[in-house]
Write a protein that binds this DNA or RNA. Structure first.
Length: 736
RNA sequence: GCACUCUUAGCUCAGUUGGCUAGAGCGCUCCCUUCACACGGGAGAGGUCGCAGGUUCGAGUCCUGCAGAGUGCACCA
């Protein structure tokens, strides 16, 4: 027996070496599994892409949970003999990364991006990204992730750039990407648009003003936007205002003098709200914009891109809206235009969830993906979307899931997904930042060119904007497998078997992958979606810097081992449910790794010279019964894993090891092994070996490090690495 | 406003398609350094499974209502 078993299991001294050995074996790559006869050349395929972490980020507990689940799935399928591929990558996270670099440069050098040329600035961002890349990748490895590093992809590398450009051009040519003047979410702080899904609403209590507008009283929480209001809108059936005709003009005294106002009747007005009358600011409000579009009304910009008032505001021009508001209210009061104020009005203000500022809607010329535009379905392998049938991108997204071509787990998220699709608007994909995939469109006067390569001739200017980072992420299963080329990888591994990710990016990512892959490749990007919950602190709060409750997974790995962390993140964490993580839980599972270690020590010390021959005929009746019970449990575990019930599988193995194998079987074995009945002793010794052998295999996906470390000192191993040993169920059956 | 989730031991949570005396981790009490393991073992305290109905031979598990907590979505100025 190896002397290392005389000491307690020490994960910190073990894990890096075990990972290095796995990596060196080449078995993270499916071709190597085939080449060495580990799996058959025509074996079933199991493939996944890693949701790429931010290249400039560091590993957090959410990543740890994701890696634990995915690695368990990968190792399970690899051991079952599948050609298993799990593709790693990182995301440029354009907006987040650029913001980070901008702030670093400003701190150090007091320079902003406008002090650089675009090329020089991008060189700085790229340099920073390259430097940080190693950090996150090493941290991913610390979790034991069996990723195929030979296929590593970065969302901004050359192959991915090609895929993104190609996708844009194809969608442009199909009329599904267009450029238009529309109201968008503008972040004055980050100086860019953001998509609807990136907007987060924060509750705020502010005063609500009732203002005199000619014969009407209108309500607003934002008097600073009201300067240009010259349309007063009411419901067509509102009897109180029946005397006013649609289109009728009236003169009213307003903030900066008299204005000619036009009466508009529109059913969007809720007569029950406030006074049932409102004025509109089409340039800075989506509802107002829609009303203005319906009636062909003028739209005037009041606030500029920095959040400052324009000349229409008269004496307030040039002032930031935050500062101007109290003064405007003051002036309104002086003029006697304030009828009443509700001091405590609760409403939601739009903020940029990506760490930006308060969203100020603006009308801008931007690029959009048309989600409601009908087109003939391209060649398709979807079960309910036939080539040539009239569809929209929404249809593809809905049908892919409704038909069962894609299964979302837990299923309640399917409902949430459908709801989201129903109210989806066209997706604004252009961003006014520099870091990212540049839009492949060039202009020359009135001419416009869209193509994968720049246009011929002089005088062309490329669109300065870049694409929403989710546009490139949406291609991830395709772009990592070589699309737009018809590669062997694409033919073999696409659609991927399962996409595992957090439920918080169901809309951002999962839905957009379905949209883009469905249109561009005519099939789903994956067969199943497994959504894990958010990792929270022991009190159930979100982890955040401001709360100071962030748990660093690397600390936990250092103290308790990656195996312990994996179990803590898996056991008790059903799909879609949030996970509360506490250090005590992780410590508890470290004890499990040590328990296993000591079990191995006991079994090895008592079975020296015993072979693992499975001579079941010579076994004692009760030992055969124990094996049968064990195999029944392993059947259940296998079934659970097949159905993504990882938490149950892990829990069952944990209890079998501790409560059955250690507490009962091993304890009973002590007198048997020492007893006078040598046949019984021999039978029992084989049972111990046989069971530990099976348990090491079955536990390996969950606790790969400690099981592999034991395996390396296991005299009975049939493969040099446990990682590529056979799954226990199926093996015995053949031999019986 | 609409939708969804949660409410099980002191704390944090499992309990897959309804089925034997309801479980885990941590914590608590008492005992044990017995030859795999004190990162251990033994014994134990602790639960009307939110509340009220219903379906069923049988419900923590399904249905209805109520209460509390939370999340997502929404163009109520």
């Amino acid at each position: 027996m190896d002397e290392k078993f005389l000491k307690p299991y020490n994960p910190a001294a073990t894990e890096d070496a075990r990972y290095a050995a796995w990596e060196a074996s080449g078995y993270f790559t499916p071709e190597q599994l085939v080449a060495d006869g580990i799996v058959a050349p025509n074996a079933p395929v199991f493939s996944m892409v890693l949701p790429p972490p931010n290249v400039t980020g560091t590993l957090h507990t959410g990543h740890a949970a994701m890696l634990a689940v995915e690695d368990i799935l990968a190792r399970f399928h690899r051991m079952r003999g599948c050609r298993t591929l799990w593709i790693p990558g990182t995301d440029s996270a354009a907006l987040a990364t650029q913001t980070k670099v901008e702030s670093l440069i400003y701190k150090k050098e007091k320079r902003t991006r406008y002090d650089f040329t675009r090329e020089d600035f991008l060189a700085r961002v790229n340099q920073f990204a390259k430097e940080s890349e190693r950090t996150i990748l090493n941290q991913v490895k610390k979790m034991g992730s069996s990723l195929d590093w030979s296929r590593y992809a970065f969302t901004l590398d050359e192959r991915r750039y090609r895929a993104v450009t190609e996708a844009f051009v194809r969608m442009y040519e199909a009329g599904l990407i267009y450029r238009g003047h529309r109201i968008v979410n503008w972040d004055p702080k980050m100086q860019t648009t953001v998509s609807d899904d990136e907007v987060a609403y924060v509750e705020e209590t502010t005063p609500f003003y009732y203002l005199r507008y000619g014969p009407f009283t209108i309500g607003t929480a934002r008097p600073e936007t009201k300067f240009g209001d010259k349309y007063v809108v009411m419901h067509p059936d509102d009897a109180r205002y029946a005397q006013y005709q649609h289109g009728q003009k009236i003169t009213v005294e307003w903030i900066n003098g008299t204005v000619e106002a036009t009466i508009i009747k529109d059913a969007a007005i809720d007569p029950e709200f406030g006074t049932g009358v409102m004025t509109i600011t089409p340039w800075h409000d989506a509802v107002d914009f829609a009303i203005a579009e319906r009636h062909g009304l003028d739209k005037e910009q009041i606030i500029d891109e920095q959040g400052k008032l324009l000349p229409v505001a008269g004496e307030f021009a040039g002032m930031h809206i935050q500062k101007a508001r109290p003064r405007i209210v003051e002036k309104l009061k002086e003029k006697g235009l304030v009828v009443r104020v509700d001091e405590r009005y609760t409403h939601r203000i739009a903020t940029n969830s990506r760490g930006g500022g308060i969203i100020e809607p603006q009308i801008k010329e931007q690029w959009f993906v048309a989600v409601n535009k009908e087109f003939p379905m391209p060649p398709s392998r979807f079960s309910t979307l036939k080539e040539g049938a009239p569809v929209t991108l929404k249809t593809i997204m809905r049908e892919a899931v409704a038909s069962g071509d894609i299964r979302i787990m837990p299923s309640r998220f399917e409902k949430i997904y459908f709801r989201w699709i129903d109210q989806l608007h066209d997706w604004c994909i252009s961003r006014q930042i520099w870091y990212g995939h540049r839009i492949p469109v060039w202009y020359r006067g009135e001419e416009r060119y869209c193509g994968v390569t720049p246009p011929e001739g002089e005088g062309w200017e490329q669109d300065p904007d870049t694409l929403d980072t989710w546009f490139s992420s949406g291609l991830w299963t395709l772009s990592t497998l070589g699309w737009p080329e018809e590669t062997e990888d694409l033919a073999t591994y696409h659609p991927t078997s399962v996409l595992e990710t957090g439920y918080d990016i169901l809309f951002f990512w999962v839905a957009r992958m379905i949209l883009m892959t469905g249109f561009l490749h005519g099939e789903p990007p994956f067969r199943a979606v497994y959504l894990h919950g958010m990792v929270r602190d022991e009190k159930g709060r979100k982890m955040s810097k401001s709360l100071g409750n962030i748990i660093d997974p690397l600390d936990l790995i250092q103290k308790y081992g990656a195996d312990a962390l994996r179990l803590a993140l898996i056991i008790g964490a059903a799909a879609g449910n949030d996970i509360k993580l506490s250090e005590e839980r992780v410590r508890g599972y470290k004890h499990f790794a040590n328990k296993l270690w000591n079990i191995a020590r006991f079994v090895l010390s008592r079975t020296e010279g015993v072979s693992l021959e499975r001579d079941f005929a010579a076994w004692q009746e009760e030992d055969r019964a124990l094996i049968a019970a064990r195999d029944a449990l392993l059947e259940e575990v296998t079934e659970d894993l097949t159905h993504f019930r990882l938490h149950l599988a892990a829990d069952k193995l944990y209890h079998y090891v501790w409560d059955v194998f250690a507490a009962q079987i091993i304890e009973e074995s002590k007198p048997i092994l020492e007893g006078a009945d040598r046949a019984a002793a021999a039978s029992r010794a084989q049972l111990l070996l046989h069971t530990l052998d099976a348990l090491l295999r079955a536990l390996h996906p969950f606790v790969p490090f400690v099981t592999e470390e034991i395996w390396q000192s296991w005299p009975h191993r049939d493969r040099p690495l446990l990682m590529v040993a056979r799954w226990p169920i199926g093996t015995d059956r053949r031999e019986k």
